[in-house]
Write a protein that binds this DNA or RNA. Structure first.
Length: 415
DNA sequence: AATCCACAGGAAGCCCGGGAAC
DNA sequence: GTTCCCGGGCTTCCTGTGGATT
């Protein structure tokens, strides 16, 4: 008698998905509901590229999951297609400035995506002076001759971190190009990021602003329906599941990405449990999982010092303190360092780390003034309670273990 | 109205590791 | 090898500040 293969059972189960890819938020569908106006505005401007003219630079604003990236890549795809048809070389280069987040790296990325094999050498990730990378970039663009659409996604992130030199250079690139043309599209989650910009850059980049309004619950439902029709087996969605996913995502400032993830993971949950219909309790479980799945890797990949600071905040909260001040965090942090025989960093640095943890969404830090008692930050952890943050940190960094043993056994000393 | 707290957060510069060019 | 460049993490030094208290 043969032993059954462990996959037999899984394979014989009926899947609830027809095509799971369609429910991923990075999948680009053939139609984008409720974004006609934005698509029209962008394509009206970009059509210039097909005549060989320079389209205006654009900035697209809107909250995460409002469809900015999806719309842009959708329009650009169509544009490139039409370009090929008409024998005009139109190329789009999309850069995610959250991953590629310095001037040098963005320029290198663009340069290397224009690489002609066996002809050009790859620009190294470090070593060259920036202006040389810039010159090389211009050279390659001219060699390929055409109109280049440079899309800088999450540009606010880059500007906040690295300043506006890159934008200055890129929005000025047409004066260096001889035969080619280029246009810059900035995508920002932050409405006010242009405040940080040099006025010249501001006026050149902001020739055309487009605001993406968040989707409302009704629109999210349409999106989910459209996608689930193609992605899921008919009839597997229980009553009210789409409505629930949309409502939850609409609470999260109308994030379509969030709605799609929610629906996909709910279905996975149902499938895993062997249920044939997705019900609202699957959605609830999925919601919890999404929360911790997003946060857990962020915590465990934190550098040691940042873990220490986060740990200090958590220890403080564990002892019942809320709205901790920077100074208090620093004090606990110093004790923790002493305990594991590390030399502590300065308070200035910790202030920066707190800022960073806030940006990562692990804590919320609001600057408040307590009058006579100074100006400081009120810090609260925003890690969901069901997520065990401390084991996560210890797991990825054994050295930290003593701190928690120490503090959890001797709370009174720290309080 | 002046003071003053407890920091925020900018600027400059150091040191390091990575690499290129000469 | 030496000298250049980039970027990250960090320190030092600094100026700025909202509002309770004097």
């Amino acid at each position: 008698m043969s032993i059954p293969n462990i996959f037999d059972d899984l394979l014989s189960r009926k899947s609830l998905f027809k095509n799971k890819e369609i429910l991923r938020h990075d999948h680009s569908p053939r139609r984008l509901p409720h974004r006609d106006e934005e698509i029209n505005k962008i394509s009206y401007n970009l059509v210039e590229a097909l005549y060989g003219h320079i389209p205006s630079n654009m900035t697209l604003y809107g909250v995460t999951g409002a469809g900015k990236t999806a719309v842009t890549s959708y329009v650009c795809q169509h544009l490139e297609e039409k370009g090929r048809e008409k024998g005009r070389n139109v190329e789009t280069i999309m850069v995610n400035c959250r991953q590629i987040d310095t001037q040098y790296r963005v320029l290198t990325f663009i340069g290397n995506s224009l690489l002609e094999e066996h002809e050009d050498e790859e620009i190294p990730f470090t070593g060259w002076p920036t202006d040389r990378v810039m010159k090389e970039l211009v050279k390659r663009m001219d060699k390929r001759s055409g109109v280049f659409i440079i899309v800088l996604d999450e540009i606010d992130h880059l500007v906040r971190k690295a300043g506006d030199d890159l934008l200055y250079n890129l929005t000025n690139i047409n004066s260096m190009l001889k035969v080619s043309r280029a246009c810059v599209i900035g995508i920002s989650n932050d409405l006010k990021f242009t405040d940080f910009l040099d006025p010249r850059v501001k006026s050149r980049l902001g020739q055309l602003d487009i605001l993406f309004k968040p989707y409302d619950a009704q629109q999210l439902q349409d999106i989910l329906r459209q996608r689930s029709d193609a992605a899921l087996v008919e009839g597997v969605l229980g009553a009210g599941v789409i409505e629930l996913c949309s409502a939850l995502a609409a609470q999260e400032h109308g994030d379509a990405r969030c709605a799609l993830d929610l629906l996909r993971i709910s279905t996975e949950k149902a499938e895993f449990a062997g249920d044939e219909i997705v019900l609202s309790h699957h959605v609830r479980t999925a919601q919890h999982q999404i929360e911790s799945d997003q946060i857990a890797p962020v915590i465990s990949s934190l550098p040691t010092q940042q873990k220490l600071v986060l740990a200090s905040i958590l220890i403080n909260e564990h002892t019942g303190l809320k709205n901790i001040q920077t100074g208090e965090v620093y004090e606990i942090y110093r004790q923790a360092c002493k305990h594991i025989r590390q030399s502590p960093l300065t308070q200035r640095r910790i202030s920066g780390i707190i800022q960073n943890l806030d940006m990562l969404g692990l804590i919320t830090a609001r600057t408040i003034s307590r009058g006579r008692y100074g100006r400081t930050k009120e810090i609260t952890s925003s890690i969901p309670k069901n997520l065990e943050a401390i084991p996560l940190m210890v797991e990825s960094e054994e050295d930290l273990k003593p701190i928690f043993e120490h503090s959890y056994n001797h709370q009174s000393r720290l309080a």
